[in-house]
C-alpha cells in the first residue's frame, strides 16, 4: 500500500462527502472561517452590549410624559438640566465619588502589607496559600458578604458583643457612612491585592539590595524605590475598587444611611419608572469612570494589569 493511498479522502458516504467539501472550502477560505468564528461573538457583544450602551446615551436625551408616564422620544436636555439644577443630585454624586475615593485609598493601604508579605517575604507554600486566600473571596457571593456585615454591624451583632467583652462600650455603626466605608473596603480588597502583588513580585532583589548598600534604611527604600515601581500596579488595582464602588446600590441600601448614584437610578427605574432620567444620571458614573481610566492610563496602569 503506497503513501498516496493513505492520503485518500475518507470513504464516500453522502454525509462524509459533504463534510469533506465544507471542510475544504473552510480550509481554503480563512476569511470565511474567521467570519464564522468571530461573527456570533461580535454580533452579541456589539449589538446587545455596545448597542445597549449607545441606547442608554440616546435615552438620556428623551423625556417622560408626566401624565401617562410613557417615554417621549423628543430630543432635549431636560434631564441634564434637572440634574444640574437640583442640588441633591450633585450632593449624591459627590458623596458617591468621595466614598469611592476613601474606599480605594483604604484598600490600597490594606493591600500593600499582605501583597508585600506574599510577594517578597513568604516561603513558596505560604505564598500559594496567601494567594488563594486573597482570591477566594472574589468568588464568594457578593450579596451574602454584604448581608454578613449587616448582621455583624447591627446593634446586637458580633461587633458590639466583642466590644462589650473587651470593655470598650458599643458603637452604632449599623447604618452609617462608616459601615458603608468598611463594607466597600471589605468587598473590593481582593481586586486591589492581586495587581499590587503582581507589581511587587516583579521587583528584582538587586534593586533593593543596591538601595540598602547605598545606606538607605528599609523605609527609605520602600518610599523611594519600591513604591514608585509599584505605582502602576497599585493604580491598576484601584480601578476596580473605584469602579465597583461608584456602580453599587445594594450595599448603600443594606448597610448605609445615604443614597448613592445607583440608588437614585434604581428607584427611578423601579418606582418612578422614569427611564430617561435614570439613563441621564447613569451617564455620570460612566463619565467619572472614563476620566479615572484616562488618569490611570497616564500613570501606566494598563501595562500593569
Amino acid at each position: 500500500m503506497g503513501v498516496g493511498e493513505r492520503l485518500k479522502p475518507p470513504p464516500p458516504s453522502a454525509v462524509g462527502a459533504l463534510r469533506h467539501r465544507v471542510g475544504g472550502v473552510l480550509y481554503r477560505a480563512p476569511l470565511l472561517r474567521l467570519a464564522l468564528l468571530l461573527g456570533p461573538v461580535v454580533l452579541w457583544m456589539v449589538v446587545i452590549y455596545l448597542g445597549s450602551l449607545a441606547l442608554l446615551f440616546i435615552t438620556s436625551f428623551w423625556s417622560q410624559d408626566s401624565v401617562t408616564g410613557a417615554i417621549v422620544q423628543n430630543w432635549g436636555l431636560t434631564n441634564y438640566q434637572f440634574l444640574l439644577q437640583e442640588d441633591v443630585y450633585r450632593t449624591i454624586a459627590i458623596r458617591t465619588v468621595g466614598i469611592a475615593i476613601a474606599v480605594t485609598l483604604t484598600d490600597v493601604a490594606l493591600a500593600i502589607p499582605i501583597a508585600y508579605y506574599a510577594a517578597r517575604i513568604a516561603r513558596p507554600r505560604l505564598r500559594t496559600f496567601l494567594l488563594l486566600s486573597m482570591v477566594l473571596p472574589l468568588w464568594s457571593s457578593y450579596l451574602v458578604r454584604v448581608y454578613a456585615w449587616r448582621t455583624i454591624l447591627s446593634g446586637d451583632g458580633v461587633l458590639n458583643w466583642t466590644l462589650h467583652q473587651i470593655h470598650l462600650g458599643s458603637v452604632n455603626l449599623g447604618f452609617s457612612r462608616w459601615s458603608l466605608w468598611i463594607v466597600f473596603s471589605y468587598l473590593w480588597l481582593p481586586y486591589v491585592t492581586l495587581p499590587v502583588y503582581a507589581a511587587l513580585e516583579r521587583i528584582p532583589n538587586s534593586l533593593i539590595e543596591a538601595s540598602t548598600d547605598l545606606g538607605a534604611r528599609w523605609l527609605t527604600t520602600f518610599r523611594r524605590v519600591i513604591l514608585p515601581i509599584a505605582i502602576p500596579g497599585i493604580v491598576a488595582g484601584s480601578i476596580f475598587a473605584f469602579s465597583l464602588t461608584i456602580g453599587d446600590y445594594i450595599a448603600p441600601d443594606l448597610v448605609g444611611d445615604t443614597e448613592f448614584i445607583g440608588n437614585v437610578i434604581y428607584q427611578s427605574v423601579g418606582i418612578a419608572n422614569n427611564i430617561p432620567f435614570a439613563a441621564a444620571y447613569a451617564i455620570v458614573p460612566a463619565l467619572v469612570m472614563a476620566i479615572y481610566l484616562l488618569i490611570a492610563r497616564q500613570l501606566k496602569a494598563f501595562e500593569a494589569l
Partner: peptide, 27 residues
C-alpha cells in the same frame, strides 16, 4: 479590541451595564 469589549460588562460600574440593558429591553 476583542478582549477589551468582552471585559467591558464586568469592568464598567454595574449600574451602567444594568441601566443600559434595562433601557434596551424597555425600547
Amino acid at each position: 479590541a476583542v478582549s477589551f469589549i468582552l471585559i467591558l460588562p464586568l469592568a464598567l460600574p454595574g449600574i451602567v451595564t444594568g441601566m443600559a440593558l434595562n433601557s434596551t429591553i424597555n425600547l
